[in-house]
């Protein structure tokens, strides 16, 4: 699967960019995930980046590292980034790495759009 097939990108009317990957994110897919996120932050006039993880069954530390890097980009360019839709397995890695408090995380995409 290529990045175009497993990561959907949607731009809303208020210039939020929503990324929705739909595959396990491990060492083999993290580079494409990283490229898609950095592209989202480069979108002209982007007001917010939402990463909907509802379709992600598993994530390893390479995926987590990608999100840490993205959060740094978010802070440096003052564009909020919100994660949503995490299942238990994905949430577990955030908790083990004790990074769940470093990110803004919501249960649903709707909540992510208004946080």
């Amino acid at each position: 699967m290529t990045g175009e097939e497993w990561i959907s990108v949607e731009q809303t009317g208020d210039n939020a960019v929503v990324l929705a990957p739909s595959a396990d994110i491990d060492m083999s897919r993290s580079p494409e995930f990283r490229a898609a996120i950095q592209e989202a932050f480069r979108t002209r006039g982007v007001t917010r980046v939402v990463i909907d993880l509802d379709g992600v069954g598993y994530m390893d530390s390479s995926g987590l590292a990608t999100l840490v890097e993205a959060m740094r980009t978010s802070k440096s360019q003052s564009t909020p980034m919100v994660l949503c839709g995490m299942n238990e397995r994905v949430r577990a890695i955030f908790e083990i790495a004790r990074l769940h408090q470093f990110f803004t995380i919501t249960d649903t995409r709707d909540a992510a759009m208004s946080t």
């Binding site: 530390s61 987590l64 590292a65 990608t66 840490v68 890097e69 890695i93 083990i96 790495a97 004790r98 990074l99 470093f102």
Partner: peptide, 18 residues
């Protein structure tokens, strides 16, 4: 160290934690 928030270097920590 987990307090050093940066990409990468988490693998061994995770293994030891789990």
């Amino acid at each position: 160290e987990l307090s050093d928030i940066k990409p990468g270097g988490l693998g061994v920590h995770i293994i030891r934690e789990v």
